[in-house]
Design a protein around this nucleic acid. Structure first.
Lengths: 366, 366
DNA sequence: CATCGAAATGTAAGCGCTTTCAATAAATCA
DNA sequence: TGATTTATTGAAAGCGCTTACATTTCGATG
């Protein structure tokens, strides 16, 4: 009685051996049953399952993983969780994984500045069978290591300079182009642009799309209207505040490289006593959940984030199943989502609602 | 050349043995160096580290874990990621863990309805040394199992019926009480209340706080003004829509049990052509990041989510270090954050800004 | 009925690491 | 200087699982 289950030491778990013993079989057979091996007699399977049930056996993942089995777990490395962006992607990933009975384990990378590489390798070297990298912010120096180890991984929303990875992203250039064109068609010519971090591919693509649209419509590109931000709300706020205080430029619309900075811009504008979209139009990028919560609802370019997550997961799963598959790249179309934050210029009397568009990949939603 | 590193098969990782060989030491010594054992000669340590460096050795977590070592990893089980709520808590957790050089691995539970128990046990049986449960939505039937295994865990924002767990939560009752009092002091007497899921402790506490405040101010509790929701934006929208369409009740303020449903309510109100706070006041609970993004900025009760995460992590770490510690419960104070969504009743002419409050734990912010 | 291949199960060798326990080297003391 | 600690290392036994290989069972074939 005193040496059974008392002290706080050494909790002994039920192992495969215990199940084997209880069912009068070998541990190998138990293992086979547990991992769904084909050739096991039905009665045997039943015996094992009964014992499992009765003993309350639970698999020990590290052991399984060590022994070379399938952990059915993939790693998901994200920069942070404080905006809807990552959450939405994760949602899609989760859905797809669930279908394959896989689980995901999420790591945040922002903790190890400069050590991402080490971190990633550790993950790859561990429990997981594959890796999904949502890494808009870092230039991955560790991809080589992963490739060398032949470890399956998929990049989400990040181009790999070596063109050697599976990648899922969105048509950033096109999205920015169409959004800019929309503003132009509304009559705007003085369109300020708030960039993201320009080391990030998606950021430069968006900037390029913006410039291309201006050019195609014979609107000169004015570098004074382009401001470098970091995809943060704070940036959007500060930059916009700066814009409004300057006398030399008078943009009638601001196109922010992501929703977060668009929110910041909205704050600054309201604080300055101006009305959106009557006095100035705002356009974002991403279509995070908040975009339809803010007031006025934000007109923005939708990245199919959930869809991106799903597809990335799917590709990874395929890659795990057959590691010899060549890398795939999927670029999903973005879509202009017209809500209430953009108006015509010059403003129409009594009409503050945005014009309905035709053609292009537009979408009118709430 | 042809049998070195060619095929896609069997990636052999660098192991502790390789390092041992390279440095001319035993694997035991290498292990000691790697896990920071005290009594190792400095020169030896250096030899090992050099070899590690040179070979690019990376620890194999499953192996370490299997062998009984410290994985330095705790599990974080959350219902989902699609609202700022969880993200903010995770942020705090992460900060605290970083200090102790621990990592967190995040699992989402929504995938396994009815199997949470199994899921949790698997986690506990695996890689992690402890578990943080953000579980406002589920009544955990698995706590017994965890306790029995003597596995360290901390509940966040969830009361445990058995009073036997470490718990970190916020003073929901008090927060709701003070918020309601604030509305009353603004002159409101017809205050609608949108609840959360009433199986959840925090939801019932908030409801109770609301009722208590009414009672203390001699305002009759009208069950027709209390609506059962599920902490979702959709609920807030539908319920509020219903409220506005009814003729028999005319609340001048709506107190939603969380920010998300408050956002829904705001949508419905705007859709109905009313203005906030002039025509009706809205009050939320949580203070998620979006609360200060929406327009008008939401007056709400702040749960110190990040702080909660930090403290929970801290307690868990202590518990891991010394499993014999008794369970701790920490309840953090909530705080009324006055922004722009509540106005006086009857509305003052020319004054739509909220009154500045004195006394109580109020806070004026942006 | 002997024979053979597939099916079903068992045996045992690790996976990479930690951790006793034992052995050796270095340091201290009488 | 020899005895006694104490610091430092090594040898080897697992942790719980998978899996190649060996063995046994069994229905079917000729």
């Amino acid at each position: 009685m005193s040496n059974e289950n008392n002290s706080s030491k050494k909790r002994r778990n039920v192992t495969i051996m215990d199940v084997a013993q209880a069912s009068g079989l070998s541990c190998a057979t138990v293992s086979r049953v547990l991992s769904g091996y084909e050739f096991v007699k039905e009665t045997t399977r039943q015996r094992v399952m009964d014992a499992v049930e009765q003993l309350g056996y639970v698999v020990n993942l590290p052991a399984r993983s060590l022994a070379g089995g399938h952990s059915q777990i993939i790693g998901l490395l994200v920069p942070n969780l404080d905006n809807g962006y990552v959450g939405t992607i994760a949602q899609g990933i989760d859905q797809e994984l669930a279908r394959a009975n896989y689980d995901s384990v999420l790591y945040t990378s922002h903790r190890h500045p400069g050590k991402e590489s080490f971190y990633v390798i550790t993950i790859a070297n561990g429990l997981t069978e594959g890796l999904l990298l949502v890494a808009p912010q870092v230039v991955p120096t560790y991809l080589d290591a992963l490739r060398e180890q032949n470890f399956p991984y998929v990049l989400i929303d990040q181009a790999d300079a070596t063109e050697n990875s599976s990648i899922v992203d969105a048509s950033n250039w096109q999205g920015a182009y169409e959004a800019t064109r929309y503003l132009i068609q509304l009559g705007h010519t003085q369109i300020a642009f708030i960039t993201g971090e320009l080391i990030v591919r998606s950021a430069t693509d968006r900037l390029a799309g913006y410039k291309a649209a201006l050019k195609d419509h014979d609107i000169p590109i004015n570098d004074d209207l382009i401001f470098e931000g970091h995809f943060q709300q704070e940036d959007g706020y500060e930059i916009t505040k700066g814009i409004l205080e300057r006398a030399d430029i008078q943009p009638t619309a601001i196109f922010a490289s992501n929703d977060l900075s668009a929110f910041g811009a909205m704050d600054a504008i309201r604080e300055h006593g101006l009305k959106i979209p009557d006095d100035i139009s705002i356009l974002g990028f991403d279509d995070v959940p908040q975009a339809s919560i803010v007031y006025p609802k934000l007109t923005t370019v939708r990245q199919p984030l959930e869809q991106m997550g799903k597809i990335a997961a799917k590709i990874l799963l395929e890659q795990i199943e057959d590691p010899s598959r060549p890398p795939q790249r999927v670029t999903l179309a973005t879509q202009l989502v017209i809500r209430d934050s953009c108006g015509p210029y010059p403003p129409q009397e009594g009409e503050t609602k945005p014009l309905k568009q035709t053609g292009g990949s537009l979408l009118r939603t709430n």
